[in-house]
């Protein structure tokens, strides 16, 4: 039985892609729309609830994408930086511990 994850979509521009390449994570970026790549940082249900509580402007899009959306840009920058620093995608506990 697979457990649903509740991803945070981080869109990848050239600068972010280079950083992903440097830590060997470029292959984790998925092509989503007309070649635009996205890094889907997974959250467990518990992590999702914490994110939504910490950042009330965010929402979980249950209807279409089933992802956590509308996080401020600086928050997503920090999540991305945490991915790079830890060289892995599963970083939400680390990120939330620092909030």
């Amino acid at each position: 039985m697979s457990t649903e994850t509740y991803p945070i979509n981080i869109w990848i521009n050239e600068e972010r892609y280079e950083k992903l390449q440097q830590v060997g994570l470029a292959g984790m970026a998925q092509e989503m729309l007309a070649g635009l790549k996205v890094l889907r940082v997974p959250c467990t249900e518990e992590q999702k609830d914490k994110v939504l509580k910490l950042f009330p402007m965010a929402k979980f899009d249950a209807a279409t994408t089933r992802s956590i959306e509308l996080l401020p840009r600086d928050v997503k920058d920090k999540i991305f930086d945490t991915v790079i620093a830890n060289k892995k995608l599963d970083i939400m506990d680390v990120f939330l511990a620092g909030c």
Partner: peptide
Amino acid sequence: FSGTLIRSIIQDGVKPPRLI
């Protein structure tokens, strides 16, 4: 063209391909 995804891209300030 999910409105949510497009808004997410704009929110990140990442310039999408001109086809989009």
